[in-house]
Simulated scan of single mutants.
Amino acid sequence: MAATGDEAAAMDSISRVPVSHPAGLSLAGASSSHGEGAEPAAESLLSVPKKPSTNSDGGVETAEEAVEPAEPDINELCTDMFEKMAVFLQGELTATCEDYRLLENMNKLTSLKYMEMKDISINISRNLQDLNNKYASLQPYLDQINQIEEQVSALEQAAYKLDTYSKKLEAKFKKLEKR
């Protein structure tokens, strides 16, 4: 069966369309590297004319071309994605480096604090040893002071006993005088 009128025109447009699609796609791919012409190629894919379906045969439908939506330039999207991933990874690595730098500075400060504490403890130990040596050199004098204190206490006790004895003697003397 041979196609008539509108059917022939529709078939003719269908047979021509596949030839224009690869050219449009290759133009879009080729123009993406230059950054220009991506929009005209996308428009050329959308501007394929559609034939209205007017049937003169009564029950036979004519085929219409299925037009795919224009796809964004894959190379551009990949480049954009890789640039953004590079920025993200650079930020992550920078943050990690900064964290390690901060940790290094904290370790240095902690080390300095421990060195200061070590110096302080050495000074305290040295001063304590000096005090112990001075105490040891003063120990004979302290022993003498303790002996003198004991002797003073014993002398004080003897003075109290002598005082009590002298009071008793005085009382006896006054008693004898009155007689």
Rank of each mutant, 00 (worst) to 15 (best):
Met1Trp: 09
Ala2Glu: 14
Ala2Cys: 09
Thr4Met: 02
Gly5Glu: 00
Asp6Pro: 13
Glu7Val: 05
Ala8Thr: 05
Ala10Asp: 11
Asp12Lys: 01
Ser13Cys: 07
Ser13Ile: 05
Ile14Thr: 05
Arg16Glu: 11
Val17Phe: 00
Pro18Thr: 01
Val19Lys: 05
His21Lys: 02
Ala23Lys: 07
Ala23Thr: 11
Leu25Glu: 03
Ser26Ile: 15
Ser26Cys: 04
Leu27His: 11
Ala30Gln: 06
Ala30Asp: 06
Ser31Met: 14
Ser32Ala: 08
Ser32His: 05
Gly35Glu: 09
Gly35Cys: 06
Glu36Met: 08
Ala38Asn: 10
Glu39Arg: 04
Glu39Ser: 04
Ala41Met: 03
Ala42Ser: 12
Glu43Trp: 04
Glu43Val: 06
Pro49Ile: 00
Pro49Asp: 02
Lys50Arg: 11
Ser53Tyr: 06
Thr54Trp: 05
Thr54Gly: 12
Asn55Tyr: 05
Asn55Cys: 04
Ser56Phe: 15
Ser56Gly: 07
Asp57Phe: 11
Gly59Ala: 07
Gly59Met: 13
Gly59Phe: 12
Val60Gln: 08
Val60Arg: 10
Glu61Trp: 07
Ala63Pro: 07
Glu64Arg: 02
Glu64Thr: 13
Glu65Val: 14
Glu65Leu: 13
Ala66Pro: 14
Glu68Trp: 07
Ala70Ser: 04
Glu71Asp: 01
Asn75Gln: 13
Leu77Pro: 00
Leu77Glu: 09
Cys78Val: 13
Asp80Asn: 04
Met81Val: 11
Glu83Tyr: 11
Lys84Asp: 15
Lys84Ile: 05
Lys84Pro: 04
Gly91Ile: 09
Glu92Val: 15
Glu92Ala: 12
Leu93Tyr: 03
Leu93Gln: 13
Thr94Val: 01
Ala95Gln: 03
Thr96Met: 00
Thr96Gln: 00
Thr96Leu: 05
Cys97Glu: 11
Cys97Gln: 11
Arg101His: 15
Arg101Ser: 15
Leu102Gln: 14
Leu102Tyr: 11
Leu102Glu: 09
Glu104Ile: 03
Asn105Pro: 06
Met106Ile: 12
Lys108Asn: 13
Lys108His: 12
Lys108Thr: 14
Leu109Ser: 10
Leu109Glu: 06
Thr110Asp: 10
Ser111Tyr: 09
Leu112Phe: 13
Leu112Cys: 06
Met115Phe: 10
Met117Cys: 00
Lys118Glu: 12
Lys118Met: 13
Ser121Asn: 12
Ile122Tyr: 07
Ile124Tyr: 01
Gln129Gly: 02
Gln129Val: 02
Leu131Trp: 08
Asn132Glu: 15
Tyr135Glu: 05
Ala136Lys: 03
Ala136Phe: 10
Ser137Arg: 03
Ser137Asp: 12
Leu138Thr: 02
Gln139Arg: 05
Gln139Asp: 03
Pro140Met: 01
Ile148Lys: 00
Glu149Met: 04
Val152Phe: 01
Val152Asn: 01
Val152Thr: 07
Val152Pro: 00
Ser153Tyr: 08
Ala154Met: 02
Leu155Tyr: 13
Leu155Gln: 07
Leu155Glu: 14
Glu156Gly: 09
Gln157Ile: 06
Gln157Tyr: 03
Ala158Gly: 04
Ala159Val: 11
Tyr160Glu: 13
Asp163Val: 08
Asp163Ser: 14
Thr164Ala: 10
Thr164Asn: 01
Tyr165Ala: 09
Ser166Arg: 04
Ser166Tyr: 09
Leu169Thr: 14
Leu169Pro: 02
Lys172Trp: 01
Lys174Ala: 04
Lys175Cys: 02
Leu176Phe: 06
Lys178Thr: 14
Lys178Pro: 04
Arg179Asn: 12
